[in-house]
């Protein structure tokens, strides 16, 4: 640190006393004066150390308190974030469920129309005496609505989760790039 120390005065005082000690020609009076000076400096230094240590410890306590408060806020934020994610998941599931129901309903209507317009005349021709065949076909379509809806729901959820994961990965990658750029800027 040389000439640029926060303890410059104290170092100067010490140096002066050392220089005095190097001399061998001091009188009793000079020795007494120098010793008095040294004791005064020492006393001042002890007072300084006492006060600075006390204040430093207290401010460390303040810092610890602030850190604890920050940690607690972070935990609360993480908890809220989890709750938010859960709610978003539930909303996404509900949204996808509704969309799947709509799609399956339209497919069922389509199949019903196809069976009525295209299949019914063929069935009537082939199974003239059996009216139950057409009915059975419609029943099959009706029975397939629920499993169809479940399948569509699961498929769409899977796709949505894949999309979500991809977006999160992209965000993480962006953050990494941002950090690297900031680091580079700091270095420059």
């Amino acid at each position: 640190m040389g000439g640029q120390s926060i303890y410059q005065n104290e170092l100067d005082n010490l140096e002066q006393s050392k220089e005095f000690l190097k001399r061998n020609d001091y009188s009793q009076m000079e020795l007494q004066l120098e010793f008095k000076k040294l004791v005064e400096h020492y006393e001042e230094l002890v007072d300084q150390v006492k006060i600075i240590t006390k204040i430093s410890d207290r401010l460390q306590k303040k810092l610890n308190k602030t850190n604890d408060a920050l940690e607690s806020s972070n935990n609360q934020l993480a908890e809220l974030n989890n709750q938010l994610n859960e709610t978003i998941d539930q909303l996404t599931e509900a949204k996808i469920g509704r969309r799947a129901s709509t799609i399956v309903l339209f497919i069922a209507i389509g199949l019903f129309v196809i069976s009525e317009v295209l299949l019914e005349p063929i069935i009537d021709d082939v199974f003239k005496d059996n009216a139950f065949v057409g009915l059975a076909l419609k029943l099959v379509v009706a029975i397939l609505i629920k499993p169809g809806e479940d399948f569509a729901n699961k498929y769409m959820l899977k796709q949505a989760r894949k999309k979500q994961m991809k977006e999160q990965e992209e965000k993480r990658a962006d953050k990494k790039v941002d950090k690297k750029v900031k680091k580079k800027r700091k270095i420059l």
């Binding site: 926060i6 300084q48 600075i52 430093s56 401010l59 810092l63």
Partner: peptide, 12 residues
């Protein structure tokens, strides 16, 4: 609001 140890010496 806050100061470090060496600042405490300078305040003194």
């Amino acid at each position: 609001e806050y100061f470090n140890t060496s600042s405490s010496k300078y305040i003194l």
